[in-house]
Protein backbone atom coordinates (compact mmCIF):
# COMPACT_ATOMS: atom_id res chain seq x y z
CA UNK A 1 0.00 0.00 0.00
CA UNK A 2 1.22 3.45 -0.80
CA UNK A 3 1.25 5.97 2.07
CA UNK A 4 -1.67 7.76 0.45
CA UNK A 5 -3.79 4.61 0.40
CA UNK A 6 -2.82 3.98 4.00
CA UNK A 7 -4.08 7.43 4.99
CA UNK A 8 -7.28 6.80 3.03
CA UNK A 9 -7.86 3.57 4.98
CA UNK A 10 -7.09 5.37 8.26
CA UNK A 11 -9.67 8.08 7.57
CA UNK A 12 -12.26 5.47 6.53
CA UNK A 13 -11.49 3.44 9.67
CA UNK A 14 -11.93 6.50 11.90
CA UNK A 15 -15.30 7.23 10.30
CA UNK A 16 -16.56 3.64 10.55
CA UNK A 17 -15.23 3.22 14.10
CA UNK A 18 -16.70 6.43 15.45
CA UNK A 19 -19.93 5.74 13.58
CA UNK A 20 -20.35 2.30 15.16
CA UNK A 21 -19.39 3.57 18.62
CA UNK A 22 -21.92 6.40 18.32
CA UNK A 23 -24.64 4.03 17.14
CA UNK A 24 -24.06 1.79 20.19
CA UNK A 25 -23.94 4.74 22.56
CA UNK A 26 -27.18 6.16 21.19
CA UNK A 27 -28.78 2.73 21.37
CA UNK A 28 -27.79 2.49 25.03
CA UNK A 29 -29.18 5.93 25.81
CA UNK A 30 -32.34 5.41 23.74
CA UNK A 31 -34.57 5.66 26.84
CA UNK A 32 -32.94 8.85 28.09
CA UNK A 33 -33.05 10.50 24.69
CA UNK A 34 -36.78 9.98 24.59
CA UNK A 35 -38.08 13.44 25.30
CA UNK A 36 -41.60 12.43 26.28
CA UNK A 37 -43.80 9.42 26.94
CA UNK A 38 -47.11 8.80 25.20
CA UNK A 39 -50.33 8.35 27.21
CA UNK A 40 -50.28 4.63 26.28
CA UNK A 41 -46.84 4.25 27.80
CA UNK A 42 -47.98 6.06 30.94
CA UNK A 43 -51.03 3.76 31.28
CA UNK A 44 -48.94 0.62 30.78
CA UNK A 45 -46.61 1.71 33.57
CA UNK A 46 -43.51 2.41 31.45
CA UNK A 47 -43.21 5.95 32.78
CA UNK A 48 -41.42 6.53 36.10
CA UNK A 49 -43.63 7.06 39.13
CA UNK A 50 -41.09 8.42 41.60
CA UNK A 51 -39.59 11.25 39.55
CA UNK A 52 -41.03 13.80 37.16
CA UNK A 53 -41.17 13.05 33.45
CA UNK A 54 -42.82 14.39 30.30
CA UNK A 55 -45.94 13.17 28.62
CA UNK A 56 -46.90 14.21 25.08
CA UNK A 57 -50.13 13.88 23.13
CA UNK A 58 -53.03 15.77 21.64
CA UNK A 59 -55.33 17.86 23.82
CA UNK A 60 -58.64 16.05 23.49
CA UNK A 61 -61.44 18.11 21.96
CA UNK A 62 -63.87 19.40 24.58
CA UNK A 63 -61.70 18.36 27.52
CA UNK A 64 -60.27 21.78 28.43
CA UNK A 65 -61.74 23.17 31.66
CA UNK A 66 -60.65 26.29 33.51
CA UNK A 67 -61.17 26.67 37.25
CA UNK A 68 -62.97 29.98 37.78
CA UNK A 69 -60.96 32.55 39.69
CA UNK A 70 -57.57 30.87 39.22
CA UNK A 71 -55.04 29.96 36.54
CA UNK A 72 -55.68 26.26 37.00
CA UNK A 73 -56.65 24.32 33.88
CA UNK A 74 -57.56 20.68 33.41
CA UNK A 75 -57.43 18.84 30.14
CA UNK A 76 -57.04 15.33 28.78
CA UNK A 77 -54.05 14.23 26.70
CA UNK A 78 -54.70 11.48 24.20
CA UNK A 79 -52.83 9.42 21.63
CA UNK A 80 -56.15 7.96 20.37
CA UNK A 81 -55.45 4.75 22.27
CA UNK A 82 -55.15 5.87 25.89
CA UNK A 83 -55.62 9.15 27.71
CA UNK A 84 -54.17 10.91 30.71
CA UNK A 85 -55.86 13.64 32.72
CA UNK A 86 -53.62 16.66 33.30
CA UNK A 87 -53.93 19.50 35.78
CA UNK A 88 -51.79 22.63 35.36
CA UNK A 89 -51.57 26.02 37.02
CA UNK A 90 -49.88 28.74 34.98
CA UNK A 91 -49.72 30.49 31.64
CA UNK A 92 -50.22 28.35 28.55
CA UNK A 93 -48.22 28.94 25.33
CA UNK A 94 -49.79 30.65 22.29
CA UNK A 95 -50.25 27.48 20.31
CA UNK A 96 -52.06 25.68 23.12
CA UNK A 97 -55.58 24.71 22.05
CA UNK A 98 -57.79 21.67 21.81
CA UNK A 99 -56.59 19.26 19.14
CA UNK A 100 -53.04 20.61 19.43
CA UNK A 101 -50.06 18.45 20.33
CA UNK A 102 -48.56 19.44 23.68
CA UNK A 103 -45.89 18.16 26.03
CA UNK A 104 -46.40 18.43 29.79
CA UNK A 105 -43.67 17.98 32.40
CA UNK A 106 -44.63 16.94 35.89
CA UNK A 107 -45.46 14.02 38.16
CA UNK A 108 -48.08 11.34 38.13
CA UNK A 109 -50.29 11.46 41.22
CA UNK A 110 -51.52 8.24 42.80
CA UNK A 111 -55.04 8.76 41.46
CA UNK A 112 -53.67 8.75 37.86
CA UNK A 113 -53.86 12.52 37.34
CA UNK A 114 -50.75 14.08 35.88
CA UNK A 115 -49.83 17.27 37.74
CA UNK A 116 -47.87 19.42 35.28
CA UNK A 117 -45.29 22.03 36.26
CA UNK A 118 -44.73 23.09 32.66
CA UNK A 119 -46.76 22.78 29.47
CA UNK A 120 -45.14 23.24 26.06
CA UNK A 121 -46.95 23.30 22.73
CA UNK A 122 -45.54 21.00 20.09
CA UNK A 123 -45.74 22.49 16.63
CA UNK A 124 -46.13 20.11 13.72
CA UNK A 125 -44.23 20.40 10.44
CA UNK A 126 -47.19 21.80 8.47
CA UNK A 127 -47.12 25.38 7.29
CA UNK A 128 -50.00 26.81 5.27
CA UNK A 129 -52.10 29.94 4.85
CA UNK A 130 -55.51 30.02 6.63
CA UNK A 131 -57.46 29.62 3.33
CA UNK A 132 -55.67 26.38 2.58
CA UNK A 133 -56.32 25.15 6.12
CA UNK A 134 -60.05 25.86 5.63
CA UNK A 135 -60.22 23.87 2.42
CA UNK A 136 -58.33 21.01 4.06
CA UNK A 137 -60.69 20.67 7.05
CA UNK A 138 -61.80 17.03 6.50
CA UNK A 139 -58.27 16.02 5.52
CA UNK A 140 -56.73 17.75 8.55
CA UNK A 141 -58.47 15.42 10.96
CA UNK A 142 -56.98 12.44 9.17
CA UNK A 143 -53.44 13.84 9.45
CA UNK A 144 -54.09 14.59 13.12
CA UNK A 145 -54.88 10.92 13.65
CA UNK A 146 -51.75 9.69 11.86
CA UNK A 147 -49.61 12.14 13.81
CA UNK A 148 -50.94 10.83 17.09
CA UNK A 149 -50.40 7.26 15.91
CA UNK A 150 -46.79 8.17 15.18
CA UNK A 151 -46.41 9.54 18.68
CA UNK A 152 -47.90 6.40 20.14
CA UNK A 153 -45.49 4.11 18.33
CA UNK A 154 -42.30 5.60 19.74
Amino acid sequence: MTPRQKRMVTVAAILVGVGIATAFALQAFQKNLLYYYSPSQVKSGEAPTSRSFRVGGLVENGSLKREPGSLEVRFTLTDFAQEVGVSYTGVLPDLFREGQGVIARGKLRDDGTFVAEEVLAKHDENYMPPEVKQSLKPHAQATGATQAAGQGST
Partner: peptide
Protein backbone atom coordinates in the same frame (compact mmCIF):
# COMPACT_ATOMS: atom_id res chain seq x y z
CA UNK B 1 -35.38 8.63 15.71
CA UNK B 2 -36.56 10.18 18.97
CA UNK B 3 -39.68 11.95 20.09
CA UNK B 4 -38.54 15.55 20.25
CA UNK B 5 -40.22 18.85 20.92
CA UNK B 6 -38.84 20.10 17.62
CA UNK B 7 -41.13 19.27 14.71
CA UNK B 8 -40.22 16.83 11.96
CA UNK B 9 -38.75 17.99 8.64
CA UNK B 10 -41.05 20.03 6.41
CA UNK B 11 -38.92 20.11 3.27
CA UNK B 12 -35.84 17.85 3.44
CA UNK B 13 -37.64 14.53 3.07
CA UNK B 14 -38.66 12.25 0.23
CA UNK B 15 -42.36 12.94 0.74
CA UNK B 16 -43.89 16.11 -0.68
CA UNK B 17 -43.15 19.22 1.41
CA UNK B 18 -45.53 19.96 4.32
CA UNK B 19 -45.33 23.64 3.61
CA UNK B 20 -47.64 25.48 1.22
Amino acid sequence: WWSTLHQAASVTKLDKPSIA
